[in-house]
Design a protein around this nucleic acid. Structure first.
Length: 772
RNA sequence: GCCCGAGUGGCGGAACUGGUAUACGCGCACGACUUAAAAUCGUGUCUCGUAAGGGAUGUGGGUUCGAUUCCCACCUCGGGCACCA
């Protein structure tokens, strides 16, 4: 008997699959189709890590099962290759980012193939390929034309020591992700995308999709829809009014002062009436210079200044109340002004106590009525902000806009797309926070497409969320140079959206939300057939290093899948990662435990090599177990309960070891249900049974419901809720028959002697409980 | 502070709509095979007790014939948001 030589087997079948292209999807094919998607990886220099394998294997299992169920399956892969790590690497080494990306994607491709994923490699995409980002730029231009992309002066994160602008993701807890120093804000012109115009639909349409509930909740919280009233407070001796937003109009009688955000426009308008202007001006400056880390600190103490000389009128009771500015009121939410009700609001109370403001316990009144009475209106507000879309960075898609002195912002004509990212000498952002592209005058200086006059190119690039906001569309038709994808391909694969998308929880409020936004826009301009991109969204848990801490290169506790594939095999790694624990929860890596998964496959190999016989007498219990196992695996895959699926296959394998011999047909059925988990081993053993075509093209076995029914079953007998014995009963017996059988049971006699039976409970097929 | 999720053996974890808690795997112990080791196979492995039996699913209550599962209060850990009016 040959040993299970994983290296030989895995290499052999990976080559065969490549050659026969068995995983290629056929666009337009008749019958059922299925689009399974995973988040495409960022090809970092560190190579593939075990976390990629966990999520990829899960969707690989699902798509392999779908294929065996007769679906035309699309399971594509590509590279989300724009991004900071590559750029930083280029800054350090001087090697072109495009070159680094090529090296890294080659490594990733090789590694992914070595794990045996059934990707359709003919549809591979790369967001940094000009043929791809042409369409990323095209979508941006459509948004620009519809007024959804606009440039505005806004505050960006700024690291004073690195002298560069930082993306939100680069600011961790108020500190610079690069140097660890404190960050501040800097005003800068930025391209923005008006995602807030879609806030309502992004919230409401979550009702239509099958996402895990926690994902919906997190998105809803992020969008932050809240309904309330906008009410105007008059200012005494002024034509100006303070418009406040409140969700508690019913508490308006208790409003004892109002607060404006320090940068509220009204503050300047009231300047001439304010008697303590110097104090006010100092406070505004102080707030502006406050580092981010202090403003958001846990135990921050409320600060603020009264605007002396001006007084507001509470419209509900006409009482005069003071006006304040304080940084606990944000200019970016609601109207940037509040009515303070210290009796019912924690923050207002804290502020009132500090500044000795009145705290009045007034009765509640009807919110809707009072809003109408004082001339306010019911409004809906969102926490969601427009998306800062500019990066002063090199390694991203150039924003296809030309600045003309006469015509303003002019879109690059579509025929001139893509705007190719030019090669530069230095990738370091400039001292004043401009993108490195700004220093290439040859590229920057151009002519206006409209008036043909002198003009300059936009030098900001897009964030790395741009390319990933629509990539799943490109997979359907990756080589199209006329459209982002053909109508035919989109109406075939995206008819109802991506069928199943699995990814990380960390992308819930970024990538997932951004791509829903883009998709809705594309739906509005009739490019895609659905308003939601993904029908179903699930998420995987992280893999932690031994000891339960995050895997990180700097700590040196990462696991290289390459080593596991080499010493145990890809199939063992796949089984192990699926067996580790519940798929949606974080699990701790344990190299010690991998051996269990390898032993499982070793046993199957040995059974396949020595126990298969054509002449096997019918074993009813074994048949029952086989069909129960098929049933369980079939449903466990659908619920992503991969760990329990594997454990029940282990039970089955243990049973195969116990019995004399197994018929070829039974063994083949088992190989088929294992095939999505361990594609190489099962292909090899399937081949040994004499099959000529791939197991992955065979049909998913159906369990026989008749074979699952047992004649006799073992049930527990309890007395007063405590298990005393087990009995074998016929499944068809009724309660009376069981009762007479149970009362005759010798073991139970001492428990029942001289006792009165108060109740006899029989739960069909499960349990008997006697209350005495 | 608010919103999610989770607390079960030495460890990872299982238990369907309330019905035999600890499946499956790792580790450990003993045994078989072997000159020996590895590999493999077998047996055992929550806890107290010689046993009969008792006690255990974060803690304390409740509902129920019966609770890991449902309800209430609390504790701990993980994740997200964070002065959002």
């Amino acid at each position: 008997m040959k040993n299970y030589d994983h290296k030989k087997i895995e290499k052999k079948w990976q080559g065969e699959w490549d050659k026969s292209k068995i995983y290629e999807a056929k666009t337009g094919a008749k019958g059922k189709r299925f689009y399974g998607l995973i988040e495409f990886p960022y090809p970092s220099g560190a190579g593939l890590h075990v976390g990629h394998i966990r999520s990829n294997t899960a969707m690989d299992i699902i798509t392999r099962k779908r294929r065996m169920e007769g679906y035309n399956v699309l399971y594509p892969i590509g590279w989300d290759a724009f991004g900071l790590p590559t750029e930083n690497y280029a800054i350090k080494t001087g090697i072109q980012p495009a070159k680094v990306t090529k090296i890294n994607t080659d490594t990733f491709r090789k590694q992914l193939k070595s794990v045996g994923f059934g990707f359709d490699w003919s549809k591979e995409i790369d967001t940094t390929n000009p043929a791809y980002y042409k369409w990323t730029q095209w979508i941006f231009l459509q948004m620009f034309k519809k007024g959804l992309a606009y440039k505005t002066k806004t505050e960006i994160n700024w690291c004073p020591s690195c002298k560069i602008g930082l993306a939100n993701e680069e600011v961790v807890g108020g500190l610079c992700d690069r140097c660890g120093g404190p960050t501040g804000k800097k005003e800068k012109e930025q391209w923005m995308l008006a995602i807030t115009k879609y806030a309502d639909r992004l919230d409401k349409d979550l009702d239509e999709v099958n996402y895990l509930e926690k994902i919906k909740i997190q998105q809803r919280n992020w969008i932050g829809k809240s309904e309330g009233s906008e009410i105007e407070f008059n200012i005494q001796d002024s034509s100006e009014k303070i418009k406040v937003f409140t969700t508690r109009a019913d508490t308006i009688l208790g409003a004892t002062y109002t607060v404006l955000a320090p940068d509220h426009e009204l503050v300047n308008k009231l300047k001439s009436q304010i008697t303590n202007w110097i104090e006010v001006e100092n406070y505004i400056k102080e707030v502006k210079d406050k580092p981010e880390i202090e403003r958001t600190a846990e135990d921050k103490i409320k600060t603020g200044v009264e605007l002396k000389g001006v007084v507001a009128i509470n419209p509900a009771n006409k009482k005069e109340i003071s006006i304040w500015i304080a940084d606990y009121v944000l200019s970016t939410y609601g109207t940037g002004a509040i009515m303070a009700v210290p009796m019912h609001d924690e923050r207002d109370r804290e502020f009132a106590l500090k500044f000795n403001l009145p705290i009045l316990d007034e009765p509640f009144i009807d919110a809707k009525e009072i809003t109408e009475k004082v001339g306010g209106k019911i409004v809906t507000k969102y926490k969601l902000r427009d998306w800062v879309f500019s990066r002063q960075r090199y390694w991203g898609e150039p924003i296809p806009i030309i600045h003309c002195e006469n015509c303003g912002y002019v879109p690059v004509p579509e025929k001139d797309l893509p705007v190719i990212l030019p090669k530069v000498k230095s990738y370091t952002p400039t001292d004043n926070g401009e993108s490195p592209l700004a220093s290439i005058s040859k590229w920057v200086n151009t002519t206006c497409p409209k008036c043909k006059g002198k003009a300059k190119r936009e030098t900001d690039t897009m964030p790395n969320w741009a390319g990933s906001s629509w990539y799943f569309l490109r997979y359907t038709d990756p080589k199209n140079n006329k459209e982002l994808a053909s109508k035919k391909a989109l109406s075939y694969w995206m008819k109802e959206g991506v069928d199943w998308y699995n990814g990380g929880m960390e992308h819930t409020t970024l990538h997932l939300l951004y791509s829903r936004f883009w998709h809705k826009f594309l739906y509005d301009i009739k490019v895609v057939p659905t308003s939601e991109p993904y029908m179903k969204r699930t998420s995987h848990g992280m893999i932690l290093a031994e000891g339960g801490v995050k895997m990180s290169k700097s700590i040196g506790n990462t696991i290289d899948p390459k080593d596991i594939v080499s010493s145990y095999g890809a199939d063992t790694l796949r089984i192990y990662e699926m067996f580790m624990g519940p798929f949606d929860q974080a699990v701790t890596w344990s190299t010690e435990s991998i051996i269990g998964s390898r032993r499982f496959l070793d046993k199957i190999w040995r059974i396949g090599e020595s126990k298969i016989s054509d002449d096997v007498k019918l074993n009813k219990d074994f048949q029952t177990l086989l069909h129960k196992t098929i049933k369980k695996i079939s449903s466990d895959i659908e619920t992503m309960s991969f760990n329990t699926a594997i454990s029940s296959m282990m039970v089955f394998v243990n049973e195969m070891e116990r019995i004399e011999s197994i018929s070829k047909s039974d063994f083949k059925m088992f190989l088929q249900i294992l095939a999505p988990f361990a594609p190489h081993l099962t292909e090899e053993l399937w081949n040994h049974t004499g099959e000529k075509s791939s197991i992955h093209k065979s049909s998913w076995p159906k369990y026989n419901p008749k074979k699952i029914i047992e004649d006799t079953i073992k049930i527990a007998v309890q007395i007063n809720g405590k298990v005393r014995t087990e009995i074998l009963i016929g499944v068809d017996l009724n309660e009376e028959e069981i009762k007479s059988q149970v009362l005759k049971d010798e073991v139970l006699i001492p428990w029942l002697e001289n006792k009165e039976i108060k109740r006899f409970i029989y739960v069909k097929g499960r349990i008997v409980n006697i209350v005495v």
